[in-house]
């Protein structure tokens, strides 16, 4: 028992619920504090960029969102692998919980990117290589969630969604590469790619850390909700079973 790895210990959903319940308030507090500090740095300390002026402040939420959009997909891919190969009992809970959160951060990256694009490029949407790849990533998230919700058998839906997630992780770099290639063909790279000065890099890193902690908080909470949901479902089935059982025995007694 003592040489169990952490993942093995966490494999038991009951133990996971206990540990995560203790961890959650601390994570939530830490992410709130760090995001608050990042916002203070962003608005009161960081200087305006000499090229982009104050709009560089959008970067402090745009870049962490885009980074988390990708990280959430990596997390889903790892969880999917854990489900299909190791049949880890929490892997699907993790994959399912991460999908809407990843999609939300992807959407946020798109919204802030387009709000940044308007003052920079004069239009809300530019087929910039990064915006385009993030948009395609958003479609992949929608596909994952749509596939899961359209298959009745939840265990099967989990495994098929995992197959799709792994296919996506193989193709994402290729999609990214092709979009970059397409973009350089049509227009010179513009806008969002400015070299980052230290006075901006530090608030950006603080903000990225805060948002990452927020992501893990949300993911942990979503996993807890999903475990509870599965318990409720199991109990309801047991209740129905028992009702039918007592019905049958009553009928037999007559």
């Amino acid at each position: 028992m003592t040489n169990q790895s952490i993942t093995q210990k966490l494999a038991n959903p009951t133990r996971f619920m206990g540990l995560s319940g203790q961890l959650l308030p601390w994570l939530a507090g830490a992410s709130a504090a760090i995001i608050g500090y990042a916002m203070y740095l962003a608005f009161f300390v960081a200087p305006p960029d000499y090229q982009q002026g104050h709009t560089v402040k959008i970067m402090f939420i745009h870049v962490p969102s885009a980074w988390l959009a990708m990280m959430a997909y990596v997390l889903i891919a790892i969880s999917s692998f854990g489900l299909l190969v190791f049949r880890h009992p929490l892997a699907d809970v993790s994959a399912k919980a991460a999908a809407p959160i990843g999609a939300a951060f992807t959407l946020l990256a798109l919204i802030t990117g387009s709000l940044w694009g308007k003052p920079m490029w004069g239009t809300y949407w530019v087929w910039d290589a990064r915006l385009t790849s993030v948009l395609l990533l958003f479609f992949l998230y929608l596909g994952l969630m749509a596939l899961r919700s359209s298959i009745e058998d939840e265990a099967l839906a989990a495994k098929l969604t995992a197959v799709l997630a792994l296919v996506g992780v193989v193709l994402l770099p290729i999609i990214k590469f092709s979009v970059d290639w397409w973009n350089t063909l049509h227009q010179p790279s513009t806008g969002l790619t400015t070299t980052v000065h230290a006075s901006i890099r530090i608030p950006l890193l603080v903000s990225a850390l805060g948002f990452s902690l927020l992501f893990f908080t949300l993911h942990l909470k979503a996993m807890r909700n999903e475990i509870l949901r599965r318990r409720v479902k199991a109990l309801r089935m047991a209740e129905v079973d028992r009702a039918q059982g007592s019905h049958a025995s009553a009928a037999a007694a007559e």
């Binding site: 608005f43 009161f44 305006p48 002026g53 104050h54 709009t55 402040k57 959008i58 939420i61 745009h62 969102s65 939300a104 959407l107 946020l108 919204i111 802030t112 709000l115 940044w116 308007k118 003052p119 927020l214």
Partner: peptide
């Protein structure tokens, strides 16, 4: 804390982030 000529876009971005989260 002046935000320059594009204040609306900056505030809209932070507003969107706050709303989504």
């Amino acid at each position: 804390m002046a935000l320059g000529p594009h204040a609306a876009f900056i505030l809209a971005s932070y507003g969107a982030a706050a709303a989504v989260l």
